[in-house]
Amino acid sequence: MATIYYTGCSLDGFIATPDHSLDWLTSRDIDVGSDMGFETFAPRVGACAMGASTWRWIVENDAQGWKPKPTWVFTHRDFPASEQVRFTTADVPQVHAEMVEAAGDKDVWIVGGGDLVGQFHDVGLLDEVWVQFAPVTLGSGAPVLPRHVELRLEEVARNRDFLCGRYTVVR
């Protein structure tokens, strides 16, 4: 079992534009079934965590596409109730323990955003970072990980338009 941040990112280090758009990412050519693609990654996942902005994007753009895995949304905002997610303001270690239990022998996926991932890292609960780098620069937006985090490169792959890297967190 590992806690993994799996995300797409612009070459200059952003996961979303300043207005939370992902159009620059979703318009790219990618093989979701490749070695580091989403369809290969998803079966490993037993539970998910995300922040409020990520959940809001899913609700507004792809609510039907969200698969019903146990999901925790860290937020102080009000959202309509959902059978798919648990909304929480609890501390990361407490929720992580619940997520690990729900995941069983599978991994925990931190969907985003970068600050939430940083909170997992700050308490020693981030194990891997998988990034699919898109061939675009945004100039500003939501940073992929707004913390100093030491990583060790474990694997690289090309997935059509994307350069993919899998890193482990150096403790």
Rank of each mutant, 00 (worst) to 15 (best):
W24P: 00
W24I: 03
L25T: 04
L25F: 13
L25Y: 10
T26N: 09
T26L: 07
T26W: 07
T26F: 12
T26C: 01
T26D: 04
S27F: 13
R28Y: 00
D29W: 04
D29K: 13
I30P: 03
D31I: 11
G33W: 06
G33Y: 10
G33T: 08
S34K: 08
S34F: 02
D35A: 15
M36F: 03
M36P: 03
M36L: 15
G37C: 12
E39Q: 14
E39R: 14
T40I: 13
T40R: 11
T40G: 08
T40C: 05
F41V: 12
F41Y: 12
F41I: 06
F41S: 12
A42S: 12
P43C: 07
R44Q: 11
R44H: 07
V45W: 05
V45N: 11
V45H: 01
A47N: 12
A47D: 10
C48P: 02
A49H: 14
M50V: 03
A52R: 10
A52G: 08
S53H: 10
T54D: 12
T54E: 08
W55R: 02
W55V: 01
R56L: 02
W57Y: 15
W57Q: 12
W57I: 04
W57E: 06
I58N: 06
I58C: 12
I58R: 06
N61D: 00
D62S: 15
D62E: 15
D62L: 13
D62K: 01
A63N: 07
A63P: 04
Q64E: 14
P68E: 13
K69A: 09
K69R: 15
P70A: 09
F74C: 05
F74Y: 11
H76Q: 06
R77Y: 11
R77A: 15
D78K: 03
D78Y: 07
D78S: 11
D78T: 13
F79M: 09
F79V: 02
A81Q: 13
A81K: 14
S82P: 05
S82E: 05
S82C: 03
E83A: 08
E83L: 02
Q84A: 11
V85E: 02
R86D: 06
F87H: 03
T88P: 10
T88M: 06
T89E: 15
D91H: 05
P93I: 08
Q94G: 10
V95A: 07
V95T: 10
A97N: 04
E98Y: 05
M99E: 01
V100N: 04
E101R: 08
E101C: 01
A102W: 04
A103W: 03
D105M: 05
K106A: 00
K106D: 04
K106E: 02
D107S: 10
D107N: 07
V108F: 00
W109Q: 07
W109E: 12
W109C: 09
V111Q: 01
G112V: 00
G112E: 00
G113R: 05
G114K: 08
G114I: 08
L116C: 10
V117E: 09
Q119S: 14
Q119C: 09
Q119K: 15
Q119V: 03
D122S: 15
V123H: 05
G124E: 09
D127Y: 04
V129S: 02
W130K: 09
V131F: 11
V131L: 12
V131R: 14
Q132I: 03
F133V: 14
F133D: 05
F133G: 01
A134H: 10
P135W: 00
G139H: 07
G139T: 14
G139V: 14
S140R: 14
V144D: 04
R147H: 10
R147K: 13
H148N: 12
